[in-house]
């Protein structure tokens, strides 16, 4: 036994490498079984026509070719893009403004830790819960939003059953749930801006607005990119929140891609179509992520 071992004695470096591989085994098992295999099988399923029970009929790229003609596909595409663009734009804009306001400290100002707590709190709530809260608030009869509108002398709006308006309601609910996170990320960026730059600008007599436009925004460019990308990825992936607010109604006007995937997977069992749509989502999100990688790499060269 001893002789056998000494014959195959590993060098110290090899032993270290082997231990490293051992350390990666549990991770590899989890990733292979629950991420890589399901991802591969979704791609595989997307070339078949089946409902889980029937025989799997190979149909080539038919599922992809027929995607645009599935019911409500273009409504879905429109809703998804409007939702993602609306949420990303509003979250980043509001988040930036909130972060600018929260960044200032000094006399006569409210305690920042307290304010940060208030702004961040909604981010802790589950998407499903935020959805319920806003669904109740947007209710036509007895919802808080219409109550406030009435107080201001504006007629009630049927938030959850009007084309176009419902999308606004869904976007508002999602924005409310995400501003805090975005603001905190901006805040960290703002606090990394060297103060001597701003002081130098002060000495040169720059106004607040000039300082913002010439110093703060260029230096914040990486944070802005990160927030735009992460928020838009989250918006494309969002399922619970938009669904609980509007249930995809009225018509197809708020049925975004994720809701369609869920619908074809578990309500109608059209596994082929569902898988093709899933692959579409993977492609969209991969493209956005590659864009992030590309833009951030480029930025690092500049600074």
């Amino acid at each position: 036994m001893k002789e056998h071992l000494s014959k195959h004695k590993l060098t110290w470096g090899q032993k270290k490498q082997l231990t490293g591989v051992l350390f990666l085994l549990p991770l590899s098992a989890f990733l292979a079984v629950f991420i890589v295999y399901p991802l591969a099988s979704v791609i595989f399923y997307s070339f078949f026509d089946w409902n889980g029970m029937s025989q799997m009929n190979f149909v080539g790229a038919d599922n992809y070719r027929l995607l645009p003609s599935t019911e409500g596909f273009w409504d879905m595409a429109k809703a998804t893009v409007i939702y993602a663009a609306g949420v990303t734009g509003l979250v980043v804009l509001c988040g930036f403004l909130v972060a600018l306001a929260l960044d200032k400290r000094g006399k006569w100002r409210i305690n920042r830790t307290v304010l940060r707590f208030f702004w961040f709190f909604p981010c802790l709530l589950s998407g499903a819960i935020v959805g319920i809260i806003w669904r109740i608030m947007f209710n036509y009869n007895g919802g808080l939003v219409n109550f406030l509108l009435n107080q201001m002398g504006i007629k009630s709006v049927n938030w959850l059953e009007t084309y176009g308006v419902t999308m606004a309601a869904v976007v508002i609910a999602s924005v409310w749930g995400q501003i805090g996170m975005c603001a905190i990320i901006f805040l960290a960026g703002l606090q990394n801006i060297p103060t001597d730059m701003l002081e130098a600008a002060d000495l040169d007599g720059a106004s607040e607005l000039q300082k913002k436009a010439m110093i703060v925004i260029p230096l914040m460019a990486p944070s802005i990119t990160i927030n735009v990308i992460t928020t838009s990825i989250a918006a494309f992936k969002a399922y619970e929140l938009p669904y609980t607010v509007s249930k995809g109604l009225p018509g197809y006007s708020t049925r975004i891609l994720t809701q369609r995937i869920y619908f074809y997977s578990f309500n109608t069992n059209k596994y082929g179509i569902a898988s093709a749509m899933s692959v579409l989502l993977v492609v969209v999100i991969t493209l956005i992520s590659l864009l992030q990688l590309f833009v951030l790499k480029k930025r690092e060269d500049i600074y």
């Binding site: 990666l24 991770l27 990733l31 079984v33 629950f34 991420i35 890589v36 295999y37 399901p38 991802l39 099988s41 979704v42 399923y45 889980g52 494309f236 992936k237 399922y239 994720t258 995937i261 869920y262 997977s265 578990f266 596994y271 569902a274 898988s275 899933s278 692959v279 989502l281 993977v282 999100i285 991969t286 992520s289």
Partner: peptide, 24 residues
């Protein structure tokens, strides 16, 4: 290489794999 593969997996959207996870 493993590290890069790990980072790439962070991107995969969960809902895309939900169907095959249920089947699995």
């Amino acid at each position: 290489a493993y590290y890069s593969a790990n980072v790439a997996l962070m991107v995969v959207p969960f809902i895309s794999c939900l169907l095959s996870l249920v089947i699995l």
